[in-house]
Every structure is written in C-alpha cells, then in structure tokens.
Simulated scan of single mutants.
Amino acid sequence: MNYKIDEKGFYGKFGGAYIPEMLHSNVMELQENYLAITQTEEFQTEFRSLLKHYTGRPSPLYWAKRLSEKYGTKIYLKREDLNHTGAHKINNTIGQILLAQKLGKTRIIAETGAGQHGVATATVCALMGLECIVYMGEVDIERQKPNVFRMKMLGAEVRPATSGSKTLKDATNEAIRDWINNPVDTFYIIGSVVGPHPYPDMVARFQSVISREMKEQLQEYEGRSNPDRIIACVGGGSNAAGAFYHYLDDEDVTLVAVEAGGEGIHSGRSAATSILGTEGIIHGSKTLLMQTKDGQIIEPHSISAGLDYPGIGPLHAHLITTGRAEVVSIEDGEAVNAAIELSRLEGIIPALESSHALAALDYLTLDKDESTIICLSGRGDKDLQTYMKYLNHE
C-alpha cells in the first residue's frame, strides 16, 4: 500500500484539485513550481536555518514520567508547544512564506480557527515585511481573543467571517473568495493538510520536520527510531501529518488519529468526520466530509476551535479508510479533563486540540514495555478562558 501522494495529487482516491476556473492559474503555478523550488539546496538551507534560529527547533521529545506511571507505559511528548508562537503551525508558515517570496508574491492571506495559524502567518509576514490578511470566523474571534490581539499586534488585518457557523469552514470560504479576486499578487497560506493539490502534500512536507526529529530523539532515549505508537489530534490534520510522515511505511508503528467527538458522536454536535463523514469535496479536494444526503455541509462542533472542521485532510482520509491509522473520538469534557491531568502531573498546560490526543490514552490498550509518542501540538495559553469556565464549575 502506498501512503504518499501520487503525481496527480491523490492519496488513493482522496485529494486532487477541484477548483473553480478562476483559481486554475493560481493552483497550476503552485503545482508546477513547489517541488522545484522547495527541494533546492538554497531553499532547504534557508528553511532549516529559520526553523533552528527563529522557531527554536528541534523541539524536545520529553519523557513524561508521572503520566507514564499513571498509564503503566512509556509516554513521550513531542513538544511543539515550545515553538515560537506556541504551536506546530510556524513550521508550515515559514516554508510557505519562503515559497511565496520565490514566486514574487507581495500580499499574504490565510484562514484560521483557533488562531494559531493566523498568529504564525502574521508572524512570518512581519518577519518578511509582507502585507497580511487573516480570515477568522466571528465565533472563533470571540473565543480566541488572545490570538486575535496577537495577530493585530503583529500588523495583520483580521477579517471576520459572518456566514454559516462563523467558524473555520467559513473563514476558509472567505479566504478562497479573496484569492479569486486577487490572483496575481496574492499567496494563500493554508494552515493544514487540506485544500487543492499541492497544499496537502506541501504542508505535510513542511511539517515532516516533526517526525524527522522524533526518529533521532527516540534513538537517544531507547536506541531505536520507531515507537510502538504515535498519537496526534486531527482536525484538518497538519500536526498529525507531520508526526506520522516518516513512519507512514513503517507498519509496525501504530498511528492513532484523534478526532473531536464534541458533545457525543451522534449528538448532532460533533466533528468526528471519519465516523460521520462520507466521500465529498470541500475546499478543493476530495475527502471525508460531514454532509447531508444531498451534499449540504453539516455544521461541526468542538470545544476546540482548531478541530471544528467538517472534513479532514485527504492523507488522513486515506490512512483511515485503508486501516493504516486507527481513530479515537474524544468528547469535549474528556479533552478538558485530559488537559487538567497533564497540567497537574507534568506542569504542562496543553492546547485544547492537543488535549484530545492526550485523552485517547484512556481508550487504548497500553503495555508497560511499549513506547508511545503524543504530538503536543500547541500550548494552552489561548484556551485558558475555556479551562477557567470549566474549573469554576467543578
């Protein structure tokens, strides 16, 4: 079984570029140039230099001793929360801003849900002196105020998406409309492994630094490169794509994709796409999608703004439908409890997205001799308001 993208931009039957004619030239420009540019020694040297000296990579692989003792197994945390801007998103935005510059683009647009991708995009635009416009759902603007302030502090314009559920899906719609209207000077930095080809592959490649480092770091701990299991949360799924990337063909490594179960998978307020979804097209690619029988998108729900998306990246759709990745769905309350547990056992306050991955430990059969790596995709500063509400009700 092949888990990498093919020459037409598909992972098995998922992926591709289903786009309006007005976006054809933009997407073709990327398809024809992204590998030729990003695989040059010059690009890689600049990319890796910024990851090291600006982002602060490599991020540590931390043996969580007390968490391991509680679950009776060896648990390591890949500390993407320690990156500059507080999440894995910066890995991808640095790669894409360098590509945008090579293509002569002067105006950057992005979409954001939890705000972490928006902050990371605003950060690299400030670094490179480029105009930055970030689209964000009105609901997410309200529940992620600290990140909205960060984007504005960095000089970005935050434009609210006021249609639909006023969350990530709607912000993405607005960003695509902008791109259609400004095809020549504008580069769209997509925040996850979603969208038309080549975005899913491009973002996965930029995020693959996560698993490349994991291989080296586990070798130092255990004298081997492969853990028994990798757990990562999946909304669109860029942190999971990065954590899984160098292990895709190592089938002795179990891959666990953790989705947002919301208030319950069958409650009508969930984002468990792999269970509730069917094949469909969203934002330019064929994937698993929460939709009605006549193709209307079902509004997702998650306590976590970063997992509140009705689809998943086509790579993850392929991994899940072929059985390469296992899926666990975590409800809102379980994620918050997992965040409190990590905070009190290890002194690390995780993002709500990462908390879903942590909560999956309760659903897995774990052996004392096994090693599990959890991708801690972001830190919890942005979610303190949500955690405070929950703790006040304890």
Rank of each mutant, 00 (worst) to 15 (best):
N2C: 08
D6M: 06
D6G: 04
K8V: 00
G16V: 04
G16F: 03
G16D: 03
Y18A: 07
P20S: 06
L30N: 10
L30R: 11
A36H: 11
T40E: 00
E46L: 13
Y54H: 14
G56D: 05
P58M: 09
R66T: 14
S68W: 08
Y71M: 09
G72T: 04
L77I: 10
H84Y: 02
A87M: 08
I90M: 08
I90V: 15
G95M: 10
L98C: 06
K102A: 07
L103C: 01
G104T: 02
G104R: 02
I108V: 13
A110Q: 10
T112G: 00
G113V: 06
G115N: 01
C125V: 07
C125K: 01
M128A: 11
M128I: 00
V134G: 02
V134F: 10
E138V: 09
Q144H: 06
K145R: 15
K152Y: 05
A156V: 07
A161W: 06
T167C: 10
L168H: 03
K169N: 14
D170E: 15
I176S: 09
I176L: 14
I180E: 14
N182Q: 13
N182H: 15
P183T: 09
V184W: 04
P200E: 03
S208Q: 14
I210V: 14
K215Y: 07
L218H: 05
E222H: 12
N226I: 13
A232V: 07
C233S: 15
V234E: 07
G235Q: 05
S238H: 09
G242A: 06
A243D: 03
D249S: 15
V256W: 03
A257R: 07
A257F: 01
V258K: 02
E259G: 06
G262I: 07
S267Q: 10
S267K: 11
G268S: 11
A272L: 14
I275P: 00
T278L: 01
G280H: 13
I281Y: 00
H283E: 08
S285R: 00
L288K: 08
M290V: 10
G295Q: 09
P300R: 04
P314N: 12
I320N: 03
E326G: 07
E326W: 00
E326R: 15
I330S: 08
I330P: 06
G333H: 15
A339F: 12
A339R: 14
I340D: 12
S343H: 12
I348Y: 04
P350Q: 12
L352E: 07
A357C: 13
A360Q: 11
D367G: 01
C375H: 08
S377G: 09
S377W: 06
Q385N: 04
M388N: 12
N392H: 10
